[in-house]
Design a protein around this nucleic acid. Structure first.
Lengths: 232, 232
DNA sequence: AAAATTTCTTAATGAAATGTTAATATCTAT
DNA sequence: ATAGATATTAACATTTCATTAAGAAATTTT
């Protein structure tokens, strides 16, 4: 029974890493072990994984920093953190980055296994994102979300900031349909509260300014729900 | 900032339950507290929740049994278990049923909050969006309840407020049939009393004004019972 | 038919969400 | 360390929304 699922394990303690890797391998996962954050990031980029298990406390580059880098490249891959003790702060930071779970060392290996299964079986994971498209046409604009450039038909072209870019991309992907506030906040700001919400409003204002170049395009607010990019 | 997410909390210890409920309420969740598995299941069936937090150790019906019943009815709702100690067996059973997470008592409330957030916005990636219909045609109108827009044939279009929207949706879903006052009140206003009833009347008046555009449509009162949206 | 109850409608009020610009704060690359 | 870019927070204006009040009208009960 080949499970086929690939796990990236980043753990600086070689003994513990070895044991954990073997244990997971026995349980039909294909495991790649990296001994620090730098190697971890390289491995991550070199191949496709289904899940990452990251030790937080590591020399050179800690697990949280590594996680941030991974998240920039891949928003969806599940992350599990290992914390040496119950370092609440690390745990909270981890969740903010988009952790799926954390485990406190020492932990029970069967429980880890159960978590992994649970995460990988989640129906939500089946959902594979629209990540590939990065070039869009709408109204009089051409929008390249990879280069973060919004170009107007005539000539003018704007460099978008990362947040402007992400927000515009989500609006465009939901063209003429509602982009719920919560969804955008949780995806872009990774949190949904009064302040992130106000921040989002500021970005909506900025985008509206760009889009003013095409008078038929509008970002319409649906009070209490979200926004909708629409034509005419 | 309305989070509006609804949590079912099932916990037999009344003190702890109360405290936890208050804590979550302060953090903008709407919490319904049940003190045992039986009551928990009833509450679950009586209304819609976004997440359940279940104590495992409970009299009458334990959390795992309750979870199984809930899973039979709803296979997607996120479940978080609370275990008194690190009862490995319970944890493993929990995952088997399809838990999203578990917490060992005593736990840090901030961490619970982080978990809840993480779980809820993970699910919302899948687009929690009710797959139910949100577009309707009746009389001379097109009604999009997702965007809260009511459009008349010859062009005029109205933005509906959330309450107008919900009420109209219920009327349309019961087209030509009685929509009992109590049902609408309990679903939309979450309460049925003199004042909510007055408020509902105000909304009926507002809807009538919109529907005036099509003279064949009427919202008919059934004295003491409710309302009926009908054509002719 | 008078009294009591329920419904109808408009308007006033206050709370909450959004729009927008400007002032800080934070980050990033030299 | 500093400048420039980016992000957040503050501040104030505006809009949207739900509730309540109040008086009239309709319906039911007595």
């Amino acid at each position: 029974m080949k499970s086929n699922k690939r796990i990236l394990l980043v753990e600086d303690d070689p003994n513990f890493g070895r044991i954990l890797k073997d244990y997971l391998t026995i349980n039909n996962y294909e495991v790649s072990l990296a001994v620090n954050g730098i190697e971890g990031f390289e491995k991550f980029n070199r191949s496709d994984f289904d899940l990452c298990i990251l030790d937080i406390m590591m020399p050179f580059k800690d697990g949280l920093t590594l996680a941030k880098e991974i998240r920039e490249v891949n928003e969806l891959i599940p992350l599990i953190f290992l914390t040496a003790k119950n370092l609440k702060d690390d745990v909270l930071k981890g969740y903010k980055i988009g952790a799926d779970d954390y485990l406190t060392k020492p932990f029970d290996s069967e429980i880890l296994l159960a978590k992994i299964k649970s995460i990988l079986n989640r129906k939500s994971n089946v959902y594979n994102n629209e990540q590939d498209t990065f070039e869009f046409e709408f109204g009089d604009f051409n929008f390249n979300s990879k280069l973060r450039i919004l170009t107007h038909k005539d000539d003018e072209s704007y460099k978008l900031s990362p947040k402007e870019n992400q927000l515009l991309k989500m609006l465009v992907l939901n063209f003429d349909d509602l982009l719920p506030r919560d969804i955008a906040l949780n995806k872009i700001w990774r949190d949904s509260n009064y302040f992130t919400s106000r921040s989002m409003d500021v970005y909506i204002a900025k985008l509206r300014k760009y889009l003013d170049k095409d008078l038929t395009l509008k970002i319409i607010n649906v009070h209490g729900e979200g926004f909708r990019l629409a034509k005419e």
